[in-house]
Structure formats: structure tokens, C-alpha cells
């Protein structure tokens, strides 16, 4: 069986859970429901449908169906894992907001806690956490990572294409260990939450652009220049008196 609608007909790219849609009349086939018209039992994957199965509504052949959503795909599984990790982070900071920060004069009440633009990064999840009192780049541990040894307050330099960033180690009871790099705090410059979201998304793009590197103090270059000035002259080739053996064998014995 092949279909043309999505992934150039690559059957292995759709999972048994994929919900497919007729590209002519937008009728969907959901494996969870099956197809009462052709008496297909619920739980039958799209790929397992009979060859002559066609759209129950307009008769378009099976090959012309497209993926509408695929809860069984790798992307969906990843998104679910990220959602799980960020949900704890959001809940944690919502609690801080309600219990400790709400009354402080420096918070921006136009904003709310949101973990945004998270994506996989070297086996971990990287994204931005917006809160009424800060916006941080946040790195959450991926499924195979053990960060239990992190000491809160320790600094770690992480390298991205746009430069080196110091991340601070953190630990929250609900979230567990995570690493954060401050982007904005306080948040008075944002007039709406949508603006903060736009900036957060832009940060995740700009972070990976080598063009966004700021000038450093160039201390290492200055040091290199100074050392080059003070470097000793190259060692002259010292003619060592040849040994008796070397002289007699013409140097062959030294090989």
C-alpha cells in the first residue's frame, strides 16, 4: 500500500495512531473509531485498511489521504515530554507568584508565568521562562540526565553559536534541578504578555545565530600579544658534539 498525501508516501513515517484526512473532502479516518461504513473495527491502523478502502464520504482512494495529526509520532512523543517538564516548571513559578511575588512593587502585572519555545538541545530541553519579575533562558534535564548533584548558585558556561553564556544552577522542589541564564529582570519594559512572548521566541532564534556575538574584553588576545613581545628568541640549533658511534656510522645508528 502506498499513499501520496504525506511524507511522499512513506508508510513508516505514520504511526498506527495517525489520524488521516481525505485531501478532497476533509473526511477524517481516526483509528480509534474505525469506519462504520466499511465495518472497520476501532483500533485498526490506517496502514492496515484493505487496499480497496476509499473515502467513506466521497470515494477518493486511500492513497490520497493526508496526515492530520499523529499522536504516535516521535515529534508528538517529544512534545508530550517537553509539556510534562515545562508544566512542572510553570506550576512551580505560579506558586511563587501567588505566594511571594504578587505584592512586590517591581513586578509587571501585565505578564504571567509561561514556559515558551522549549525544544530539545543536546538531550535536554531548552526554552524561555517568562514570569512577571524575570525572563530567563532555562535548560531542563532531558529524560536520560541526572542533575541531582547540582549546587544552586554555581555558575556554568554553556556555549551556543552566538556566544558563551553563564548559566546558574537552580533547584526547586517541584521542578527539580535546572539551569537558568537571566535575560531580563525586572520586566518593566514589557507592556503586554504578547510582547514578552515575541521576544522569547526571537531569543530562541537569535541564540543560534553566530552574528549575535558581543565583544569580549579580549584579555586572552592582549595576553598573547604581550607574551609574543616577551617571548625568548628561538633556540639556536646547538651543534652537539657527535658521539663516537654516530661519527663512525654516519648517523645511521641514531635512527
Amino acid at each position: 500500500m502506498s499513499f501520496e498525501g504525506s511524507y511522499l508516501g512513506a508508510n513508516d513515517r505514520i504511526s498506527p495512531l495517525a489520524i488521516m484526512e481525505c485531501k478532497v473532502c476533509w473526511t477524517t479516518y481516526d483509528p480509534a473509531e474505525g469506519d462504520s461504513f466499511r465495518q472497520i473495527m476501532p483500533g485498526t491502523a490506517f496502514a492496515d485498511l484493505p487496499e480497496d478502502w476509499s473515502c467513506p464520504h466521497c470515494g477518493t482512494p486511500k492513497t490520497q489521504f493526508m496526515v492530520r495529526e499523529d499522536p504516535g509520532s516521535a515529534e508528538a512523543a517529544e512534545a508530550a515530554m517537553i509539556a510534562g517538564a515545562t508544566a512542572a516548571l510553570e506550576a512551580d513559578f505560579r506558586e511563587i507568584w501567588s505566594s511571594k511575588m504578587r505584592g512586590l512593587p517591581m513586578v509587571n502585572t501585565a505578564l504571567h508565568v509561561e514556559a515558551i519555545a522549549f525544544r530539545p538541545h543536546d538531550g535536554n530541553w531548552l526554552g524561555v521562562l517568562i514570569a512577571p519579575w524575570f525572563m530567563n533562558l532555562v535548560l531542563l534535564p532531558g529524560p536520560d540526565q541526572d542533575w541531582s548533584a547540582l549546587t544552586p548558585g554555581e555558575k556554568e558556561v554553556l556555549v551556543f553559536p552566538s556566544g558563551e553564556y553563564e548559566f546558574l544552577h537552580n533547584h526547586r522542589d517541584l521542578t527539580g534541578p535546572y539551569k537558568a541564564c537571566s535575560l531580563f529582570s525586572p520586566m518593566a519594559d514589557f507592556s503586554s504578555h504578547m510582547q514578552a512572548q515575541d521576544v522569547a521566541r526571537a531569543v530562541m532564534v537569535a541564540l543560534f545565530d553566530p552574528g549575535n556575538r558581543a565583544e569580549t574584553d579580549r584579555a586572552a588576545e592582549i595576553r598573547a600579544v604581550r607574551e609574543a613581545e616577551l617571548a625568548p628568541p628561538p633556540e639556536p640549533e646547538i651543534a652537539v658534539a657527535p658521539s663516537r658511534r654516530a661519527l663512525l656510522t654516519g648517523g645511521l645508528s641514531e635512527g
Binding site: 507592556s191 504578547m194 521576544v199 531569543v203 532564534v205 537569535a206 558581543a214 569580549t216 574584553d217
Partner: peptide, 28 residues
């Protein structure tokens, strides 16, 4: 951003890039 008072993509990108440049490690 606040003074511009508009949500323009350019403003967000500029703010993002300035924030990242600030956050970068400066000691070489």
C-alpha cells in the same frame, strides 16, 4: 519597547539580540 508602544517583529528581535549580547560571557 514600551516607548515605541507597538508590537513589531523588529522590536522583539532587537530586544532579544540585545538581551543575549548582554547575557554573554565577556571575559575571554
Amino acid at each position: 519597547m514600551a516607548s515605541a508602544g507597538v508590537v513589531a517583529a523588529g522590536v522583539a528581535v532587537h530586544a532579544a539580540v540585545s538581551a543575549l549580547k548582554r547575557a554573554q560571557k565577556k571575559s575571554q
